[in-house]
Design a protein around this nucleic acid. Structure first.
Lengths: 336, 336
DNA sequence: CTGTTAGCGCCTTCAG
DNA sequence: CTGAAGGCGCTAACAG
């Protein structure tokens, strides 16, 4: 219930009748160089004063703020949230604190954020970059690890889903279930690595299965019915009794595809197959469940932090790319 | 591409051939007290040195770190995410930076977090407290606004859904649609305010409608089928031709209720009515859509920040509670 | 208008 | 083992 000013290290020192240095040492766990007696007195003083060391001050002095930043291209997708949970968990376990930023899909914003980071002397950054950026990442002298996408012209550790393996999983599943015509539907690919890899892998894999025809459609705004409905309709009508499926590039695409199918009165799991990347919590309950390829998002976030921590601690080894395998979650939507 | 040490205010001052004070003033926008000439020189120096002021240092000096904290009881629910987006947006617009914490439903953790906050000298806190806490919030001398739940023994500004109005919305809708038996299903209420208010309001409202029988069921772990399935089954069987509906206390409850109904082969929108608080993105696509009461989550987050900012800026007025009205989103699940 | 002087709270020599 | 002195980068008086 201290209404008094916040206690400082000097207050503690005074009360414990020791030098500030000893208190500082105590705070930093250098117990071997402190007599039992002094430790006890300091401990007591700290408790009675309810003293909390200022990380600002110590951070300024040592340059170690115990702050890391997490920068998202778009915070509004549930995927970002899941990643964040992983990072947050790792932070908590390692006594780091998380600054969260949302570039909001604006390059200008992303740039500003990066500036801010140096202002706060964060020790490192985990970033899901906005495509291949236009501003310079490379004059950015901070430990950094990327998630999802490599940053052009700026080598970093990188962690993301093994898109090739994951796509293979999806395609194999479709082939095994005797689908004869598959539409890969994706948002504007731009230079977003996951979308590129998934669509390319899809394209290449389909070559090896003559019994099944693959097709890729890139939609500008996947949430616009007028853009997506006719495409799906046309695809469906082109089926002519063939067994058809749709593969959606991510959670958003899956949801919007499902919505469109509803509007068109095409039922997945009966009229058509549906499978999507990401495994949002609603996937199990849409219709009789939608088959998905799940990403280990928590692990990805956690791993990103671990890589970052190593860099912060001085790891100078070659940049790593950590790929996490996807997991196929089979549900009714692909069992026609 | 500066590989050289980070520039400091002194470097700028030296290069611009002015005093540090002038640079400081420049940085703080006190242009009226600076000659054009000096301003120009400073500007130039800052640019050539790529100087970025350290918020740590200035924060330490002025006590204004431009940092605020957002503390969640549970970061894993999508509701938290949406709130966060609102807060983040407000932060961005006001040049504040967001520290995000997850108490992870552990009181111990929440306590630690609060400690940390003072370490970083955050200027304020937005908190979704863990129930009525066991540790002391009130010796916590920081601007603070709560979301969702009031904090027992610690008055703060508070912003959340108008649960009374929202519940009324739901009940009225059900009555208007001639339901005769309604089950309110909720997770363990404990002392979580939203759950209390919703269930109590439900209970009271039902008194005024003799034509409709209300019932409240509190489930310990709503995601456990063995806990929820038999309850729903029993309720359904007790119907005897009456028009029945289920009202779920939040998004999680809605989802789990839907899952259970699926398992029990009871179809919402046909066999039974279903309506839930919160409006998660999947609500529109579960079955033919689930009727919901939507919370303006973005606004709630945004508003929380605004209230906090006022407090930070010295507002000492009486504590406010801001209630946001819910919005009824009618879908097929309540149109039998 | 401008610069000098003290610190903010802490950590790091460097002598005891 | 311990403490005094100096300084991290910045700002707030106080002089000029």
């Amino acid at each position: 219930m201290t209404l008094t000013k916040k206690a400082t290290i000097s207050d503690v020192a005074k009360l414990a009748k020791v030098g500030k240095t000893s208190v500082s040492r105590y705070l930093n766990g250098e117990f071997k160089v402190l007599s039992e007696d002094i430790q006890r007195r300091i401990k007591l003083a700290i408790e009675t004063l309810d003293y909390k060391p200022s990380r600002l001050a110590s951070g300024m002095k040592k340059g170690r703020t115990k702050l890391i930043a997490l920068v998202f291209a778009d915070l509004s997708i549930s995927y970002a949230m899941e990643i964040m949970r992983g990072v947050e968990t790792a932070c908590r376990e390692n006594d780091y604190t998380l600054l969260v930023f949302n570039a909001n899909n604006e390059s200008e914003q992303e740039k500003k954020i990066l500036q801010l980071l140096t202002s706060y002397q964060v020790e490192g950054v985990i970033i899901q970059a906005l495509r291949t950026h236009d501003h310079n990442f490379y004059d950015f002298n901070l430990p950094m690890v990327s998630i999802d996408r490599a940053i052009h012209g700026c080598e970093t550790d990188l962690v993301h889903l093994d898109n090739i393996q994951a796509t293979k999983l999806a395609v194999t599943h479709l082939i095994e279930n005797a689908f004869e015509q598959v539409l890969f539907i994706t948002e504007k690919i731009e230079d977003i690595q996951a979308r590129q890899q998934r669509s390319e892998t899809f394209y290449q894999l389909m070559q090896s299965y003559p019994q099944c025809k693959g097709e890729i459609i890139e939609v500008l705004d996947i949430s616009q019915p007028q853009q997506i409905d006719p495409i799906l309709q046309a695809f469906y009508q082109s089926g002519q009794g063939k067994k058809q499926a749709i593969l959606a590039v991510n959670g958003v695409a899956t949801l919007n595809t499902a919505l469109a199918l509803k509007r068109l009165n095409i039922e997945w799991g009966r009229d058509i197959g549906l499978i999507g990347f990401d495994d949002p919590n609603w996937a199990a309950v849409l219709g009789d469940g939608i088959t998905t390829i799940r990403q280990p998002t928590l692990d990805i976030g956690y791993c990103a932090f671990e890589l970052l921590l190593k860099r912060i601690q001085g790891d100078r080894s070659k940049f790593k790319t950590v790929l996490y395998p996807g997991e196929l979650i089979v549900r009714k939507s692909t069992i026609l």
